[in-house]
Design a protein around this nucleic acid. Structure first.
Length: 480
RNA sequence: GGCGACGUAGCCAAGUGGCUAAGGCGGCGGACUGCAAAUCCGCUAUUCCCGGGUUCGAAUCCCGGCGUCGCCUCCA
């Protein structure tokens, strides 16, 4: 397999992926602020980075994945007071809910999920150093980062200081040296959660936690820092400034990776616009696999408009894979009764090899999952054609090759984090009853009592069991 | 105003200098079937928002429009 290329926001180009340490990837993904339910936008971002991690692991890298939880911030304080509960209570509740949702989405759990409130000493140490080095200054009980001291400010968002200032839409705080200076530490207001610091009681500003925690767990110059596109400015820009100012080392991060936003009717899905779909609702309605396939069918850096139609299309596509696996299974279970033409077998082998190759070519090229999924379906189609012929006289050689096809397909699906139920899975009581009904119906069909046979098929379909009559017998699967 | 994207079939979407413009969904016609379903075959973009230019050659590069979005404020 070839080299992996990743698009780096900092250089605006695809770069060959070279890690800091051989065979190890240190990855930080900006996580959640637990003040409200997760929505589909969060889900897309985390799915994108989940697949990057899965692919890198597949390629033999040991990935160390850190994802923060910002458990103290303005939004949490405000929401808690609206709900008349303590910030701690809100955080606890929201984290529990988010963990359920993220697990249901099939995301691999990060190795460390550091919380801001458990890293106050690290943050204070960092802020103190920034003051000592002259990058930060105190105004009343607040500490601000002086962006004019950091020459590279704006390098990530491709803005220079003057145009950023010109575009500033927020009323300028007259106490600041520069309108873009941002808070590293905020003095406590009455009733707010706070910690002791050299500057009095207070709490961390928004951006500092990610710098403090990523440096703690991953060290300066780690490999991948990810998040959605809307974090480029100011969050990640500020992280670079404060981290590089603090360590005196550059780069803070080797590859900045940003995923595109989810839109609704063309407009960004956001809490503030009120146009968000809760992840929990989407998961309940469509299941994780249709959601993941829908996300991954669009290149990760492109915007994705969320519609029910799109998810429906993904579901239908999933059924295609499911049907293929069902056909493959029935062939593998079929007793070998003949010889397979070498030519036929060779064709299947070459289709499989072509698929594996092209799937990885797509993934290597900046994780082009949309392309990779296209290759997957192309393979399914080609293999289906050959399976029809193979079914005519199943041989041992054919069954072994089909098993390899299924294995290759499953491997690709595992990288995408998509589970597809083959067909009649399970051997419980329900499955036995289904088999019994199929048997009864088969006898009715032999007696040409099609009316009753069709009724059974129709009623089972209403129960979510789909029957398909094939030359090799009746096959069933659950509707997805 | 500054910066960054995007515009490919009925819908979704990959492709960013050169073989027939992937793939999925949908539709139509056919094979198979008792009928269905699934599967397969054929058709469904002579052309990639529009207008110029560069080139032997452009969906792909350049210039100019039009349209949409994001960031510059909290945001995954």
């Amino acid at each position: 397999m070839g080299d992996i290329f990743i698009y780096n926001t900092l250089t605006q180009s695809k770069e060959r992926f070279v890690t800091r340490e051989q065979n190890k990837v240190y990855m930080y993904v900006c996580g959640i602020t637990p003040y409200d339910a997760l929505h589909v936008g969060h889900a897309r971002t985390f799915t994108v980075f989940d697949v990057m991690r899965r692919y890198l692991e597949y390629r033999g890298y040991e990935v160390f994945h850190v994802q923060n939880i910002t458990d103290i911030d303005d939004k949490i304080i405000n929401r808690a007071s609206e709900l008349n509960i303590s910030p701690g209570e809100l955080v606890q509740r929201q984290i529990a809910e988010a963990e359920e949702d993220l697990c249901a989405l099939g995301l691999l759990k990060p190795h460390v999920e550091p919380r801001v409130t458990e890293h106050i000493p690290e943050i204070i140490e960092m802020v103190s150093t920034l003051i000592e080095k002259g990058y930060a200054y105190q105004v009343d009980g607040d500490i601000y980062f002086d962006v004019s001291k950091f020459q590279r400010y704006g390098q990530l968002s491709k803005q220079d200081l003057s145009s950023l200032i010109a575009g500033a839409r927020v009323e300028v705080d007259e106490r600041l040296k520069n309108p873009l200076d941002f808070a590293l530490w905020k003095a406590a207001k009455p009733g707010e959660p706070c910690w002791d610091s050299p500057w009095g009681k207070g709490r961390p500003g928004w951006h500092i936690e990610c710098s403090a925690m990523s440096l703690k767990y991953l060290g300066s110059g780690f490999d991948i820092h990810g998040g959605a596109l809307d974090l480029v400015f100011p969050h990640h820009e500020n992280e670079i400034a404060q981290s590089e100012a603090y360590t005196g080392q550059s780069p803070f991060v080797r590859y900045w990776v940003h995923s595109g936003l989810v839109t609704v009717g063309g407009k960004k899905m956001a809490k503030s616009l009120g146009n968000f779909i809760r992840l929990r609702d989407a998961l309940n309605e469509h299941g994780k696999d249709a959601l993941r396939l829908a996300f991954l069918s669009v290149h990760y850096r492109s915007p994705m408009d969320y519609t029910d139609e799109r998810i429906r299309q993904a579901k239908a596509a999933l059924e295609r894979i499911s049907a293929f696996l069902a056909t493959a299974n029935s062939l593998m279970r079929h007793p070998a009764i003949g010889e397979t033409k070498d030519e036929l077998l060779a064709k299947l082998v070459s289709e499989r090899e072509r698929f594996v190759l092209s799937f990885h070519e797509a993934m290597e090229d900046d994780f082009n999952t949309a392309q990779a999924i296209g290759e997957l379906f192309e393979f399914v189609k080609a293999a289906n054609t050959l399976l029809v012929e193979l079914l005519a006289s199943p041989s041992n050689a054919a069954r072994e090759e089909v098993a390899r096809c299924v294995a290759s397909l499953s491997e690709a699906l595992r990288i995408l984090g998509i589970d597809v139920q083959p067909a009649a899975a399970g051997f419980g009581e329900v499955e036995r009853l289904i088999e019994l009904l199929i048997d009864v119906r088969q006898r009715l069909r032999q007696k040409r009592d099609y009316e009753l046979a069709d009724m059974i098929r129709e009623r089972m379909k209403e129960l979510g069991i789909i029957l398909e009559d094939t030359p090799a017998g009746t096959r069933w699967r659950r509707a997805t």
